[in-house]
Write a protein that binds this DNA or RNA. Structure first.
Length: 665
RNA sequence: UGGCCUAUGGUGUAACUGGUAACACGUUUGUUUUUGGUGCAAAAGAGUAUAGGUUCGAGACCUAUUGGGCCAACCA
């Protein structure tokens, strides 16, 4: 009946509008333009998801364009890695292109601009140019070379291209306006001399175009309809349009740049430069370290393309700064893996358990369900014997009845096997438990509260398990102006464990994903070999028990109060105004106390404007009255404005207001 | 001493373009369960930064204020 209309995000709305205004659906075309100077990270997946997602939604082509205009930083290795990552995410690009494909066209256009008197060669030092450029609040001034003749500019530019000059001697600038309010419009640089080998054009060029000169023109050459980028490029739009104005043909499609807020994830960083530092300083073991927020890191960690795509879809597209909680990412991967990952038993922190009434040489191969979420997953056999490992955490000699696990005299179910009862323990000289002695019962139909996972010691495979914690201990490590992000590195982000896993895992292949029951999701790491299994912990299961038991620190998201502490007292008082008269009695009393405290830090000048508050906003008038009361008590003299305000309040319909007014009249 | 962008539960996004705030995560509770997982059900949590205005009616429009972000690389 009611067609479920998916609400469109603002970029889709812009496109819909363009379509409605006559743009053909066939001319829709997008692009994703990474610079091949590093690996793609989770932040890029948002940009990828938007452009490629739009391509899928409108059935329009999406180009993959490498923005390779700075040979000093770019390498083929990164080109290859980026392609691998995008393909892994499951997106298909239409054409693979490079900005360097357009170097000749860009050069020709630059010559044209010079001939039109819209570009010139500047021969000053970068310092001198920076000085003339002014600041955001101060206009720039024209440089001495700004009015060189067209002939001289043409000659110089040609010689720049021919390699006659060293880096830094000359540059080509657009001639726009040195007084422009937008810094980027103050004669931006179009070309610089760079005597560097380029990963694709080798030594064909020794002048390279700058981003602004390249990007819009490349979009135009490719006939990109909507060029989407992150918010920090907003000021570039004006220049993007200016450069386009110089070359566009009215018959051809003119690209539009639009900007969205980039993705930020709590407890991590997204800057390529900073990620590179983590790699170079050996904080992590490479770009694909499972702790890295790179796509390759997440892949190695065991994340699935589906989960990442779901995540990007869930965070949405808007224009305000955001920090998304990692718990959302974790939710997405759990949701996916829960449906697909085979269940398996592994013990990470073992303690030996002996079933005293089970024959010593007996072995049973029991049926275990592979995945109860997936009927087709079937069953496997797991070996059961007299001596097992269970998790240390799953046994306590004594515990409250909130503890559903094994305790002396208590019963518990062994997953896929029998019910056991703990009878006694053996301890070493230090009092550590070395063995738990139990008896078992084959009557498994009974209701039993706890179920434990286990492995048979004789049959278990040893495996290395790598457990990861977040890389940073701060929610936003690179947002502190006075502190370096490296200060927040979590020294315990990697924990290597010798674990025991059930024998069916012997044949696990690199990349295989499992749920270790009751523990979490794990995948087989690239380092795994035929004699040594290595697992990464992708993410733990949701663990409501962990919240109940006394937590020893770790970085729990401590509930932070709405940070109004740094807001001024009057601002805080005002925020009470909205709700004050709707508060229940007890809360209102508390609020009043708080208000009176805040009022001590408020001056009369701050309160007076509130006297004009419209009659219908009684809450604001009440809090104003209370604040005023405090001021009067502290020696403020009544004046006409105050008397007026009180007099009006006394006649008001609102009983609370009348009451407060009476109190100080 | 500027310009541009932005402001909705703890977090992220919605609100059919002006009709009284919804969805997801997170949290809590109940239930199911041979995973303290999953599933199912429910609850709490914002009155939309502040003030003024337009309007019968504003989260949405206008004005001012406040907070946050971006802009001065021969980087992208």
């Amino acid at each position: 009946m009611s067609e479920e209309r998916k609400s469109l995000h603002f970029i889709e709305q812009i496109i819909e509008e363009d379509l409605a205004n006559g743009m053909s659906k066939n001319s829709l075309r997008f692009r994703f333009p990474p610079e091949p100077n590093g690996y793609l990270h989770i932040g890029h997946t948002k940009a990828i998801g938007i452009s490629f997602g739009l391509g899928e939604y409108y059935n329009a082509p999406v180009n993959l364009r490498f923005d390779d205009t700075n040979p000093a930083k770019e390498e083929q290795e990164y080109v290859d890695a980026i392609k691998e990552d995008i393909a892994w995410l499951g997106y298909k690009w239409d054409k693979e292109l490079f900005s360097s494909d357009y170097f000749q066209q860009l050069y020709d256009w630059a010559v044209y601009l010079i001939k039109e008197g819209k570009a010139y060669v500047d021969s000053q030092s970068s310092e001198a140019m920076a000085e003339q450029k002014g600041t955001p609040t101060q206009p720039g001034i024209d440089g001495p070379y700004r009015n060189r003749s067209i002939e001289e500019n043409l000659d110089l530019f040609e010689r720049m291209k021919a390699g006659e000059f060293n880096e830094g001697e000359h540059i080509l600038r657009a001639k726009i306006d040195m007084q422009h309010v937008n810094m980027l419009m103050r004669d931006p640089i179009m070309y610089r001399v760079l005597k560097k080998h380029h990963h694709r054009t080798a030594n064909d060029w020794c002048i390279y175009p700058m981003y602004d000169w390249t990007h819009g023109e490349s979009d135009y050459i490719e006939q990109i309809s909507h060029s989407l980028c992150s918010l920090e490029f907003k000021p570039h739009r004006e220049l993007y349009d200016w450069f386009l104005d110089q070359v566009v043909d009215a018959d051809k499609l003119r690209p539009k740049q639009r900007e969205f807020a980039r993705l930020n994830l709590s407890y991590t960083i997204m800057s390529k430069r900073k990620l590179l530092k983590l790699v170079e300083d050996g904080v992590v073991n490479g770009w694909d370290d499972p702790r890295m927020p790179t796509i390759s890191g997440l892949r190695r960690r065991g994340y699935t393309p589906n989960a990442i795509r779901k995540f990007v879809e869930t965070v949405g597209v808007a224009k305000r700064e955001n920090i998304i909680d990692v718990s959302l990412l974790e939710f997405c991967i759990r949701e996916d893996l829960n449906k697909t990952a085979p269940r398996v038993m592994a013990v990470l922190n073992p303690v030996k358990l002996v079933i005293t009434n089970y024959p010593e040489d007996k072995v049973e191969w029991l049926d275990a369900e592979n995945n109860q979420e997936d009927e087709s997953a079937g069953f496997r056999k797991v070996p059961f014997s007299r001596e097992l490992y269970i998790e240390k955490e799953d046994f306590k000699e004594e515990a409250s009845n909130k503890f559903f696990r094994l305790k002396l005299g208590g019963e518990v179910r062994l997953k896929n096997a029998y019910i056991i009862k703990a009878e006694s323990v053996l301890k070493d000289a230090d009092g550590h438990i070395t063995e738990i002695h139990c008896t078992y019962s084959e009557a498994t139909e009974r209701r039993i509260k706890g179920t434990l996972h286990w492995v048979s010691i004789a049959h278990a495979e040893k495996a290395e398990v790598r457990e990861y914690d977040r890389l940073f201990v701060d929610e936003a490590p690179d947002s502190h102006p006075d502190k370096d992000f490296m200060e927040f590195i979590n020294p315990k982000s990697l924990k290597i464990i010798e674990a025991f896993v059930e024998p069916s895992l012997k044949d696990a292949k690199i990349g295989d994903r499992f749920q270790f029951q009751r523990l979490g999701y794990f995948n087989v790491d690239d380092d795994s070999t035929s004699d040594q299994l290595v697992f990464n912990k992708t993410v733990g299961l949701r663990d409501t028990w962990a919240k109940v038991k006394p937590q020893q620190t770790t970085n729990q998201n401590q509930q932070k109060q709405p940070q109004q502490n740094n807001r001024s007292a009057i601002e805080q008082i005002k925020s009470y105004g909205k709700k004050y008269d709707r508060l229940p009695d007890d809360k209102r009393a508390e609020a009043k106390v708080e208000l009176q405290k805040l009022a001590k830090n408020v001056s009369y000048d701050e309160v007076e404007p509130l006297f004009n508050t419209s009659v219908k906003k009684s809450g604001t008038r009440i809090i104003t009255m209370i604040t005023l009361g405090v001021l009067l008590k502290n020696g403020l003299e009544k004046n006409d404005a105050i008397n007026d305000f009180i007099a009006k309040a006394l006649e008001d319909k609102n009983a609370l207001l009348v009451e407060e007014a009476k109190a100080i009249s």
